[in-house]
Nucleic acid binder design. Structure first.
Lengths: 343, 343
DNA sequence: TTGTAAGCGTTATCAA
DNA sequence: TTGATAACGCTTACAA
């Protein structure tokens, strides 16, 4: 029942093992006649090459590794779609690992993948500097690394993400132009991207002569949904009980935006009447939310596809280091729904 | 830069290759002294066994394959969490493939995994009979198969899912007891589970002397979100324009429930005033929806964990066939929120 | 307690 | 155009 090998084919056809191997690989120095014989016999008997053996010999695994914080996440699961779709078309398998926003776990993910053997790595690192030496040594040895989403990471390579500054700037500007001047900025702690998003937010304030109030910048723990929920609730309650009077929120991820809606509903704060909300978000059911959510949407599938494409590119050529560094920032797309409607 | 091998360790320590191998594997017939020497040297030089070689030799890959319809799905991504968490603790890698509810794609997923080498397979088959022969031959040769979620599949093995009859029955009963007697049942076409869920729904009707109206049973195409959206909208509009006057909906998945909310909002149908809604659903933000969603919740992580545990069990022992067939149906949990509130 | 040697299923080099 | 043969890195009888 188990698979037939080239050895058996060789015996059956009274050829040498190496001839069979060459025939199967369509080598130039094998006659058409024997090629046909071999191919026919192979097909007939359902020959499947043993990839393990092939890989051991060639040192390639036809597998790419992907490390991101969590699979159970609206944003990343869309990116995964993009990665898988493209990987499939070029014949690569994909192994996912979850770093849970923790540097130590991220490290063990990298090591596990390295151990098992991957031809290349796609990673959304937990912050700008996490495991940079390890990644560098990987990238410089035999396993190219491409970074996606968290494009501020220090590794010098190709990085694919979005223009976070612009996205945050435009969203903030929109809120301001609609009379919302007291804008909370809620983000994850150690959120690799908060830098540019924060700058965009701040620049929009500055450009409209609104002073930045540090109390309006809130960071939450995103290691798990439970922790996030707790942090968010505490932070919102605290702000709302203070003499700050925010009338808008810009949030930096799906998970945060959606939860804020739930918490505000619980606290009986009307959205958008009392507080408007817009978020970096890729929920594909914004209209099912209460109220329908205004979003700064990222081209997730495109990010996944591009990153994979670039990685495979690296894998195919030697000496990718010289192709060096390039950061691609795709455009975000703003859609305004009820959660930012004008009063 | 690349990895050190046992050959090099042997040379450096003036030992034979096999002795090094045995020392590394903590074999009984190697002296403590040399073990220590070898281990120390290995650690110092960052020795990592080449898994490819090991696997080729042992025929094991330490990898399990998972096939489900889509990763970008609230329900399955939670199951994936459960699978990954457990697999990690027992040292197995996981490879996911997406069948997109299509038998052909499912088939090529199975073949791809088989080709690459997996020690076991976890699958939520697209329907009761899909690829049953292929799966059977896998299961009977060297690769045990465990089924999750779609537990009506014909393969004789361990299956882990929920008690769909009971879940649907209780939810329907609740609706009826609250005066909702005209209940739409909306499900995916070829949805492996619709059988039991449908029976539960129907039984509840019967038990309360409500005749079943076939027009109230709606099946939608779930191959993609776009197709689903179209089907749902069309079906709802048609029903609402007819002389049927449904005052409740029970839906069979997250994706469907959440979309229904969006479509009803768009059609200006008040939930729950005009139509109540309850769904098999694992959204972890039911309160963020409009209105908050009543759910029949499945213990997703537990399903993933249990299925993985059982599969590994199979992998560890020979002759798993004799352990045969067992179907585990976990309990669902009903939570009533605004979407089924009493008028 | 240690070493020798064969083998897992391939690919690749070189000779025939 | 084909075939020995070695090699990839490891495990495992069996021999010393």
């Amino acid at each position: 029942m188990s698979n037939i090998t080239i050895k058996e084919i060789a015996k059956a056809l009274d050829l040498s093992i190496s001839s069979v191997s060459k025939a199967l690989n369509d080598s130039y120095d094998i006659s058409e006649a024997t090629k046909k014989r071999v191919l026919a016999y192979a097909k007939e008997n359902g020959y499947r090459p043993n990839l393990l053996a092939k890989n051991l010999k060639t040192g390639k695994t036809n597998t790419i590794g992907v490390i991101l914080s969590s699979i159970n996440n609206l944003f990343y699961s869309q990116i995964i779609e993009g990665i898988q779709q493209h990987a499939l078309t070029v014949g690569y398998d994909v192994i996912f690992m979850q770093s849970r926003e923790q540097s130590e776990i991220e490290k063990s993910c990298i090591e596990a993948l390295q151990l098992r053997g991957i031809d290349g790595l796609l990673i959304a690192p937990i912050d700008e500097t996490s495991n940079v030496d390890l990644l560098k040594s990987l990238h410089q040895s035999n396993c190219p690394v491409v970074i996606f989403d968290r494009i501020l990471h220090q590794l010098e390579t190709v990085k694919i993400g979005v223009d976070n500054f612009k996205g945050a700037y435009s969203a903030t500007k929109h809120l301001i132009l609609n009379g919302r001047t007291d804008i909370l900025n809620i983000t994850g702690s150690k959120f690799g991207l908060s830098g540019e998003r924060f700058k965009g937010y701040k620049q929009a304030l500055t450009d409209h002569n609104i002073p930045f109030n540090p109390d309006y910048y809130i960071q939450c723990n995103m290691q798990s949904n439970e922790l996030l929920d707790g942090d968010l609730r505490t932070a919102l309650q605290k702000v709302l009980a203070s003499d700050l009077k925010p009338n808008a929120i810009i949030s930096s991820s799906d998970t945060i935006s959606v939860r804020i809606l739930g918490i505000l509903a619980e606290l009986k704060i009307a959205v958008p009447d009392e507080i408007a909300l817009i978020g970096f978000s890729n929920v594909d059911f914004p209209d099912s939310l209460n109220p329908s959510l205004s979003t700064i949407r990222q081209p997730t599938k495109e990010i996944g596809r591009l990153a994979t494409e670039r990685l495979i590119h690296f894998i195919k050529r030697q000496n990718w280091i010289q192709y060096g560094q390039e950061t691609i920032e795709l455009e975000t797309e703003l859609t305004f729904r009820k959660s930012t409607a004008v009063n």
